[in-house]
Nucleic acid binder design. Sequence first.
RNA 1: GCCUGAGUGGCGGAAUUGGUAGACGCACAGGACUUAAAAUCCUGCGAACUUCAAAAUUCGUGCCGGUUCAAGUCCGGCCUUAGGCACCA
Length: 800
Amino acid sequence: MYQFKKIEKKWQEIWEKEHSFEAITGSEKPKYYYLVEFPYPSGAGLHVGHVRSYTALDAMARKKRMMGYNVLFPMGWDAFGAPAEQYAIKNHIHPKEAVKENIKTFKHQIQELGISFDWSREFSTTDPEYYKWTQWQFLQFFKHGMAYKAKKNVNWCPTCKSVLSNEDASGGVCERCGSKVVQKEKSQWVLRMSDYAEQLLDGLNDTDFEERIKTAQINWIGKSTGAEVDFKIAEVDQKLTVFTTRPDTLYGVTFMVVAPEHPILEEYKDRISNLDEVREYQEKAKEKTEFERTQLVKDKTGVRIQGLTAINPLTNQNVPIFISDYVMMGYGTGAIMAVPAHDQRDYDFAKKFDLDIIPVIEGGDTSKEAYTGDGKMINSPILDGMTNKQDSILKMIDYLEKEGLGRKKVNYRLQDWIFTRQRFWGEPIPLVYCEKCGWVAVPEEDLPVLLPDVTEYEPTDNGESPLAKIDSFVNTTCPHCGGKAKRETDTMPNWAGSSWYFLRYMDPHNEKEMASMDALKYWGQVDYYNGGMEHATRHLLYARFWNQFLYNIGLVPNKEPFRVRVAHGMILGEGGEKMSKSKGNVINPDDMVNMYGADALRCYEMFMGDYEKEAAWNEQGLNGIYRFINRVYRAGEMINQEEGYTKELEQLLHKTIKKVTEDIDHMKFNTAVSSLMILLNKMEEIGSITKQDFRTYLLLFNPICPHVTEELNEMYGLGEALWKSAWPSYEEDKLVEREKTIAVQVNGKVRATITISVDDEEDVIKEKALQEENVKRYIEGKEIVKTIVIKGRIVNIVVR
RNA sequence: GCCUGAGUGGCGGAAUUGGUAGACGCACAGGACUUAAAAUCCUGCGAACUUCAAAAUUCGUGCCGGUUCAAGUCCGGCCUUAGGCACCA
């Protein structure tokens, strides 16, 4: 059994002392930027899931360095946010103290794993030197009209007592605590992310993200193409505009529906004869949570608005207007034209309220259900007889535009980013409110706006940030007129700091700028970015938006910040369930490092399965890897005095170099490890190896198992330290097997195997095949129709 | 409902992209070493069916069909499952 504790500590100290993994900005070497999502340093400490992704990227980074690249592989801390705050509230210490402690623990745990992070670039989002620039960038949004204060219905979590963004309130529940989110009207700072919908969608074409990640983003942005159509209102001089993806069905409109919050109701309340009924419905709708409104209500409800009637712009016929909560104010125009013959929801509503159903597309039986398929247009003068849906839509839009009745319109599900939180532990928003001048930016030289040292961090019930209670923080002077002013007391969401941290790594100690243009240009895009699937629609979208904005105002050189984005699979507990404290199946990486060593833990996590898929923990598997590493350790005893590669091993060595080289690049770590196992099996079978055999073996294994390989290299005096050495190369012509065993099939079934030489011609191979006893048995008395010989692969004899 | 993936032994998973399915590892079984255990080493290990044995045969990659000399891999249609979106007009 090898002394992994001693060995691992020794090499970690050497790497630290020699600054082995520090990236050099401006180096002549080609650059490569690997990034893993920086962790939230929670009190629970490192998770085995962290180990998986850190090791994976570490292996890639170590290999890339050995291949001569100037590799940037940084690490930092995403430390603003509620957990640290809650911990602080409970234990009556300042969150920054709690964060300091947690970072210490995390860093220690990561260092014990021997991950080759460039620690010289470390920072935390909570460092004033860092959040100064987060604030500064917020001010760029503000100054470019990209941040606005709006009173709007926001997602409010009654448990966390804070506003949530749409991304944080997905499915109508609070991302953090799982409480039902309620709608609350509040004044909030909002970033105009929806302006970037098209750019965010389009930019995906310039990236190399995994398909599932692209899909998640595309779905979240939710582009749909259609038209806006203006319906006149008969009683007043006002139009009701709707968004539809099916303008081709305009002749089938028999009623309209507006959302309960639609402004038209307030505007013309005097004309609505059944206002009480309408009001009552509006109140009921408000009480329902978003969740109930979208998930539970299958039965349609609604109220006809008496006193307002719309006019179909094509037929000039009157159509009634309803309010119903199946129409959302937040999407489109908050009003729809209803075509019950060809839309299921409209159909359900029409049936319930006994409204006309006019089919405009042939097919189906519209007395039974809405027909949503394609067919010939009917009852539609300008479209009658057309059969192609796309053509009908285009023709209708064309007509509407010509007649001034509507226009082509693209709609997005993506909404603006609600950017304020009523929390203590976040970046203060660097704005002050002056009665005379309105909202004014804090001058750049006064940044950062520091979080005050106080003793109370509790969120308040009235939805105000705890900072609002601190007079010394709130009261200030207006930078513009010098009069009395009050600071904004809301803070930023913790997605703010993570929206640009990858830029700061390029120039982390810059006191004058967020990062210098030289450094930004040198490092360019993040070449390879790894993170969890849970961030595919939040962090990843925010960071892309943020970077695209910075690009548009000339602060960064690349429009897309990340080239490749991959997501690791989750590590599940031994039973295949998600690890959780309550299930008691949490594996602590420290325990594993103590029992088996960091090298074994790393190697096991690389071997346990497909990197992108989830994998269940299995300690026996880890023990198996531990045995394997011990065998590698003992392999040194087989070293002989011969020079070069052992003849018998040469081909397999070249093959393994190729395999490991390619597999690490493609994140197929499991097969990389297995090919090293195969090579070791062969070495043991031969029982004797050269120094060069072993040196190559150690070089190949080093990215995954850095400590023990480095130790063995030194112990047997095989050469320069591995981390300073070049990655081994293979020769194509050494890969060719001179002798090979191939299968012989008769009518597609394997009947024998033959050993052939690379030089054998087709007829020689054929002859060999025909001589096999078992082959003879199957072709005897039959006619050979065809013989297929694929050189070096297979022989197939077709008989009849 | 729409959009992505994925289904292979007892288990985790391989398969040069159409060419011997099950590499490698775990588990299990038998053996060696040991007073014994651990550790280590050797052998076997998809199913069925023959056989004293060796060897062979048949079936087998979610299901049904197709293309091909040849299909885990390609095509068509389903089923299951994971993730994303969803009264989104």
